[in-house]
Amino acid sequence: MIKKQRAFLKWAGGKYKLVEALTQHLPLGERLVEPFVGAGSVFLNTDYPSYLLCDINQDLINLYQIIQAKPEKYLTEAKAMFVEAKNDKEAYYKIRDEFNRTRDPFLRSVYFLYMNRHGFNGLCRYNKKGGFNVPFGSYKKPYFPHDEIMAFAEKAQKAEFLCIGYEQAFELAREGDVVYCDPPYAPLSTTASFTTYVGSGFSLDDQALLARHARHTAIDRQIPVLISNHDIPLTRELYHGARFDTIQVQRNISQNGNGRKKVDELMALYDESYHSGND
């Protein structure tokens, strides 16, 4: 069995644990397009000739572009942040404040990894003014992902990274592509909606629009689209006409692991087999 490659970022909703099951549902193609690349586990564990990897988080895409272009310089600067003196609440909040003040892309990319590994649960969260606001995580010795960054940098030579929304990503898809969508998941209940990633978050209207883009991309342009989400009545209704399958994964939903549970995940594939009435 081929060894799985871990992403170098901690990421809520990351696909590392289910990447083997998920990739069995991805059609073959010349290029994989991901409108919601996140930490990139699917990118890292597939073998398409090329990739178009998109996200609306400018800090994330900026980080990936810098590692793609100058990994050695990045590794040197980022590793200098992973010292005992900086694994401290006061140091963390000072760096977080500097991150929120600077517009320098390289500095922000270095601080982003530091906060990802030193902040609470690896969350990526911003306030309404765009300031990163994840609290200190109090970890004994945060891990510096040197090998994972090098593996990402090597694979990134086959990729293009763009900071755009999912609608623009669909527009850029072309014949021969495969689209994989891993959107912020629909809430399991009205009280369980996840903290926003960027700006105003991903609404139920967005969930419905994404489903519509997927249908039209598959039907009108013959570009297959796979979407993953919670397996709930809402998503089965949203993705009507797709071919459904389910997979299970254990998710860590609390820092100490006491909140772990199995949740069914829905794989909805739109391809040439789609037939439906009006959309």
Rank of each mutant, 00 (worst) to 15 (best):
L123D: 11
A156D: 03
E98I: 12
R101A: 12
D182W: 07
K141C: 03
K140Y: 10
S193F: 13
A151V: 14
R117H: 11
P184S: 06
F161S: 00
K129S: 15
E167K: 13
P187V: 09
F99R: 07
E84W: 02
K141W: 03
H146V: 11
S138F: 15
K86V: 03
E167D: 10
L172Q: 11
A69H: 14
N121W: 02
L113V: 07
N133F: 14
F144L: 07
A151G: 04
M81G: 01
Y111D: 01
R125F: 11
S193M: 11
Y139W: 13
R174H: 05
Y126P: 10
K128T: 14
F161L: 07
N133Y: 09
F161T: 02
C163P: 01
Y197S: 05
Y111S: 03
A156H: 08
F194C: 01
N127C: 13
D182V: 12
V83H: 06
K128M: 07
Q65K: 15
V110T: 13
L107K: 14
L113H: 04
P71S: 12
G199V: 10
Q168S: 09
V179D: 00
Y180E: 05
S189W: 04
R174P: 03
K94E: 12
N87F: 14
A78F: 07
T190Y: 00
C181F: 11
L162V: 02
K128E: 13
K155R: 11
P187A: 05
M115S: 09
C124N: 11
